[in-house]
């Protein structure tokens, strides 16, 4: 009997604790939700106030520009295929910027990632330094490097390529070093026991293990870099973005060109998207 009352007492205490716990949790959730909603609403109002045109005023104009472009493109429908062919070289340049910068960036990233993985690093004490380097490379937006390089090198695809490669090296370096951490050290030790140099150990011991993952990340990065190289063209470094900017700032009368560029850019991005996800799936499944 006394046992039962004691049990009941413990139970009610437990219940009280549980309810208290739940209530506290709910309170926290409610507070966080309130803060979040307040941040969103005030942020929205602030951004609206600092914008040149208001949100509500612009909302019904949102389809005006696409409408204008579509009408003009519709009127000059016959021009579109020709224009698409005309802009093909620029598109290839954009793709080349993305491709070359992904390749160069990935090569730098491989070296950086090997140097900054514990257990593989050439100079174990400098692991932190290389990691910070990659952090900075990753943090720097491409546009900054591109604009500074345009001042020195003049317009053209090379500033964009260097800028994207720089950022890519940082971004891929981090992902690669995460892959490296999961690599087995046994081949490396085996190679070391026969007197292989650091370069040989990495080339023969680590890279064959991690190559599929590297490839998968590099493909994903290629996708991202196509978008980046289109954007950089817009600020003056070659490729399809540059043509888009010219056609766009010309305004009415050349909207058929804008439409043509939109279409080929869209198709390219979708095609690369699909292609790269197909290949990545194949790589992950192991062919």
């Amino acid at each position: 009997m006394t046992d039962a009352t004691a049990n009941a007492g413990a139970l009610s205490q437990l219940q009280a604790h549980y309810i208290q716990h739940i209530q506290r949790k709910r309170l926290y959730s409610a507070i966080m939700l309130t803060i979040f909603v307040l941040l969103m609403v005030s942020g929205f109002m602030l951004a609206d106030a600092r914008n040149a045109g208001g949100f509500w005023a612009g909302l019904h104009q949102i389809f005006d520009f696409p409408g204008e472009v579509l009408t003009e493109a519709g009127e000059k429908l016959a021009n579109l295929p020709g224009l698409m062919v005309k802009f093909l070289p620029s598109l290839i340049e954009t793709l080349n910027i993305a491709g070359a910068s992904t390749l160069i960036g990935a090569m730098i990233a491989i070296v950086l990632s090997l140097l900054s993985t514990r257990g593989l690093a050439r100079w174990p004490r400098l692991v932190g330094v290389f990691r910070r380097c990659m952090d900075i490379m990753r943090a720097l937006p491409e546009i900054v490097i591109a604009l500074v390089l345009i001042f020195i090198l003049g317009g053209g695809p090379v500033p964009a390529m260097i800028a994207i490669a720089f950022h890519t090296a940082g971004a891929l370096g981090k992902l690669f070093s995460e892959v490296n951490e999961n690599a087995s050290l046994k081949p490396v030790e085996g190679l070391q026991s026969v007197g292989a140099t650091w370069g040989q150990r990495m080339l023969l011991g680590v890279l064959p293990q991690v190559a599929p993952n590297y490839l998968s990340y590099a493909l994903l990065r290629f996708e991202i870099n196509i978008r980046a190289s289109a954007i950089l063209g817009f600020v003056g470094s070659g490729g399809i973005g540059y043509d888009l900017k010219n056609a766009f700032s010309w305004g009415l009368g050349r909207y058929d060109e804008v439409a043509a560029i939109f279409i080929i850019l869209f198709l390219t991005i979708v095609a690369v998207d699909q292609g790269s996800s197909y290949f990545r799936n194949r790589i992950v499944e192991g062919r």
């Binding site: 914008n51 045109g53 954007i231």
Partner: peptide, 24 residues
Amino acid sequence: DFVRGVDGLIWTIILSRAFGPGPM
């Protein structure tokens, strides 16, 4: 897929026509 495929650059251009320059 469509929204993702139309690049951020294109959205930026379209939107800046409607809303003007600024953070919004």
